[in-house]
Design a protein around this nucleic acid. Sequence first.
DNA 1: GTAATCTCTCTAGCGGCTAGAGGTTCAAGG
DNA 2: CCTTGAACCTCTAGCCGCTAGAGAGATTAC
Lengths: 142, 142
Amino acid sequence: MSLSIGDLARRTGVKVPTIRYYEARGLLDAPQRSAGNQRRYDGGALERLGFIRHARDLGFSLDAIAQLIELQDHPDQSCEAATRIASGQLDTIRRKIRRLRALEAELVRITDGCNGDGPLRDCYVLASLAGHDLCGHDHAGT
Amino acid sequence: MSLSIGDLARRTGVKVPTIRYYEARGLLDAPQRSAGNQRRYDGGALERLGFIRHARDLGFSLDAIAQLIELQDHPDQSCEAATRIASGQLDTIRRKIRRLRALEAELVRITDGCNGDGPLRDCYVLASLAGHDLCGHDHAGT
DNA sequence: GTAATCTCTCTAGCGGCTAGAGGTTCAAGG
DNA sequence: CCTTGAACCTCTAGCCGCTAGAGAGATTAC
């Protein structure tokens, strides 16, 4: 099997420049080249790129993915490190969700408080943004 | 009242380089300068920066904030535009929450499926990331 | 053989800051 | 009044994870 970068892109749903970017970042090995210097990929690259894509879809950072790939290459260790990375990612996502829910609540409060057709000088949206006094709780990020 | 950029930073919780950045982006008016070319702010700047900070905390983009400021400066119009921006932001946040919840569910499934002490070659975390077959649903972003 | 479509490398840009270099000004203490 | 040390100035570059575009060369289908 010999795939051009475009073939690989079509098969994995990862865009061509992104594939090159992953190579530059060290996530993908530099592949063989054709006589005319074009990249030619094999099944292994297809698999690895699929892995990367899937992990990206789940929100893992490229650094985390690099660590996971490193782990894959040493299959005799315990998988504890891999689960640790994954649960770290889960924590990150949960923190983001908590924060966004707080923002959602606050925004609902703000938009609901405004009837939407008065003049701007009385607009509850703008007033809420201007003064913390109308806001109540502290919604600084964590 | 005459505040240095550092005073302003302390009072609003916005860092000094960020204040200068906001000025360069046109969100803050260029303030008066001291004889030695240092920025000197008045109460209006304090208020506006508070507004920006609050809106940033709620996740508004700088562009959206620029629009809101523009609206503030024309207080005779209807406040419909302001509510529209705010509910757009609410939509954005809700979309993000939905997506993150899907990722959370998938990550829970993956980490729960792994006992955490087998060898990496059998690790359910890595296997799940490698193959979409273990994953089931499509969690592409929207 | 030629035209259409890839592909190559390189650079620059997005948002929203953050960090650092290298130099000037300010405010407080002696 | 003078010195110190903190704060300030401008400018450039870097972070993440791509994305877009220029200008040139390779490949493929007919």
